[in-house]
């Protein structure tokens, strides 16, 4: 049994699907499993130490967000009995239960999707997208978008500082700041459009039409594993729903 990109995708997809049906206790119990998989199972291991650190930071952020969601709902949704009194505030068990359901769903969904992306290099992702039937144009757009996503934050910071140095009211009242928004966005868009036109011309001059399919052979073992994962998780979900 081989665990390639398709199997990883189907595993993450199955977890994301289960997040909508499982009770919060089960959903939350998957969280340590996901972290352990990311650390110990080679197909799910991130590409770099930096990516691993970012993954753990993101899990921490998600946990904080989950606590916030539970707290906010417990405080504001006045259903059920008061389980805790904090100074003038009452925390209700109905709100906590609701918050736990929502937060656990979001936690499992987010970490399942992130587990796939943190461990899949761009090239493997592009091959996989081609194999599942996406056109070459769409794959090219996604790859170009990842390039822009890498470049834009740095460019935004540069333009922001340049406009601030020119005296743009970036820290004034809200109307002035809205005007500054345009003074940052305009040069950013202009430079990116010029670059887009150049890149588009380069693609056309190289005869890119985007009709041909990707040439990498399919990994049949990986596809079998992927099918097995999706089938068994659907079976488990169906059994759970019948039992419930």
């Amino acid at each position: 049994m081989r665990f390639g990109t398709a199997s990883k995708f189907s595993f993450s997809f199955a977890l994301a699907l289960l997040a909508f049906f499982l009770p919060w206790q089960v959903s939350l119990s998957f969280m340590p499993v996901i972290v352990l998989l990311e650390i110990f199972l080679s197909p799910f291991r991130p590409l770099s130490a930096g990516a691993h650190k970012k993954f753990l930071q993101f899990i921490g952020y998600l946990t904080f967000l989950g606590v916030l969601i539970v707290g906010m709902n417990g405080l504001l949704l006045k259903s059920g009995e008061v389980v805790l009194r904090l100074l003038w505030f009452n925390i209700y068990d109905g709100g906590i239960e609701f918050g736990l359901n929502v937060a656990s769903r979001l936690l499992l969904l987010s970490s399942a999707i992130l587990l796939f992306f943190v461990s899949t290099p761009i090239k493997m992702l592009a091959d996989f997208l081609g194999h599942i039937g996406l056109s070459k144009k769409i794959v090219t757009i996604i790859l170009l978008a990842t390039f822009y996503l890498d470049q834009l934050p740095q460019r935004i910071t540069q333009v922001f500082w340049a406009q601030e140095a020119r005296g743009a009211p970036v820290r004034s009242n809200i109307l002035q700041r809205l005007k500054s928004f345009f003074s940052i966005l305009a040069p950013l868009t202009l430079s990116s459009l010029v670059e887009s036109v150049d890149r588009g011309m380069a693609l056309q001059l190289r005869g890119f039409q985007g009709y041909a399919s990707l040439s990498q052979p399919r990994d049949l073992q990986d596809l079998k594993t992927a099918f097995l994962i999706v089938f068994s998780s659907l079976l488990a979900l169906l059994s759970y729903l019948i039992w419930k």
Binding site: A145, L152, L185, Q204
Partner: peptide
Amino acid sequence: MSGAALPLIAFSMALNLSVGQIT
């Protein structure tokens, strides 16, 4: 969706995701 338009579509996607940095 011609070859010349693909980079602009990609930039638009990146803009959707990065505009939060400016705001």
